[in-house]
């Protein structure tokens, strides 16, 4: 989960930087960072995979699944390496950073 941590660090740094240099002419325009971004992104999965990734039906749960497993699956769906009915189409909708945030959040949810 090196990439995720470094992403989170970068995001946190960007927020601090944006706040500290709010009056600097040269500061890049940067949207404020939502500290619940991972939670909010992961909530999109709940319709099919259950609230906080805990499924109550045939579609598998994502809660407690190690982040690297979910990240690899999403990559394989996106690249057409894993057969799917629908996930190959949905996986293409998210960036690597978004998938990493979602996977990390769901990995920490109780099974």
């Amino acid at each position: 989960m090196k990439s995720l941590h470094s992403f989170a660090r970068t995001a946190a740094f960007a927020a601090t930087f944006a706040a500290a240099s709010a009056f600097a002419q040269t500061a890049p325009a940067s949207a404020p960072v939502d500290k619940h971004l991972a939670r909010n992104l992961a909530a999109q999965c709940a319709n099919c995979h259950g609230t906080n990734g805990k499924s109550v039906a045939e579609v598998p749960s994502l809660a407690g699944v190690p982040a690297n497993v979910t990240i690899q699956k999403m990559k394989d769906y996106r690249d057409g390496k894993l057969p799917a009915t629908i996930m190959h189409q949905l996986a293409k909708g998210y960036t690597d950073e978004q998938v990493a945030l979602i996977a990390d959040y769901l990995s920490k949810q109780p099974k």
């Binding site: 319709n47 099919c48 259950g50 045939e58 009915t85 909708g93």
Partner: peptide, 24 residues
């Protein structure tokens, strides 16, 4: 580039549709 349709009607998605309903 994201999203799309089923290739064809199929029974596996029938199972997933019922699962979808229960989860949502």
């Amino acid at each position: 580039g994201a999203g799309g349709l089923s290739a064809d009607a199929n029974a596996l998605e029938g199972v997933y549709a019922n699962s979808w309903a229960k989860n949502i």
